[in-house]
Design a protein around this nucleic acid. Structure first.
Lengths: 144, 144
DNA sequence: CAGCATCCAGTTGGATACTG
DNA sequence: CAGTATCCAACTGGATGCTG
């Protein structure tokens, strides 16, 4: 007689798996880079340091809160540095650290792939959606 | 006299920006790859086709719903294909398409970077957290 | 075996208002 | 100018139960 039910074993495997995942460097980075504004912030800072205001103008779509949150996250990971100079008015500048700059080629790899294949992606998507639609219509005996 | 207020102009810039973003191939891909299970699914399928059950055992941490959702998303983008053979019991197999395989080097670029720099990331994070803690303690005149 | 539907908690992200 | 605090809507992801 086993001391644990199948459900318990599954549960444990699941917990274990999740713990592993949280530690996996690759998944951590994919997660970070998937954050809505990270890609854009890195792209902006790639060409040089920027002040807070310049960033928020460049990323007109981001709310002030999200911008700060994103910047803090990247700073925490050591990808960019934040330096304050003067006071009244305060002047804050963000710049990529060497670590942050070392990430740029990776982003570029994504960009290259994406731009080369965006047409295929769109085509696949349309094809898939048409197929689904057709199937659903067929299910109901509809001709449309 | 302008016909729009500053708020309206900001609002418009924001809308424009968001529309652009949704179309940017790079951001689309970063978003996709940031999906919780996409990285793992691609990693599993990199070494060859797998059946549904095999995948869910390999990704013990994922709920059945998320697994399906992830697979459908990737299929929609044309990154993997789903083939059904037999019936009672049904046998479903997932495999990367050529397009999907072409993405592997990109994932690998992320993996390489992440594994090379994970130590630095952790160090930066600890340093940052310590700094914040110290500052907060100082603010309250606490010695801890 | 593979997958869909439903319901629900937790998280993410945005609007607004305020501070040094 | 730069940033914090709060409140809230929308989305993400998970648990459960059911179908061909």
């Amino acid at each position: 007689m086993t001391t644990r039910t199948a459900a318990q074993r599954r549960e444990q495997a699941r917990a274990e798996h999740l713990r592993r995942m949280a530690l996996c460097p690759t998944l951590r980075m994919l997660d970070r880079m998937g954050d809505k504004w990270v890609g854009l912030v890195l792209r902006e800072l790639a060409s040089g340091p920027l002040r807070s205001g310049e960033l928020s103008r460049a990323l007109a779509g981001a709310s002030q809160k999200m911008l700060t949150q994103t910047l803090r996250g990247l700073e925490r990971d050591g990808l960019l540095s934040r330096s304050v100079t003067g006071s009244v008015p305060v002047r804050v500048e963000y710049r990529l650290t060497p670590l942050g700059r070392s990430l740029l080629p990776v982003i570029e790899a994504v960009t290259d792939w994406a731009e080369r294949h965006v047409v295929e992606l769109d085509r696949a998507r349309k094809r898939y959606d048409r197929t689904i639609e057709a199937r659903d219509a067929g299910d109901r005996g509809v001709v449309q």
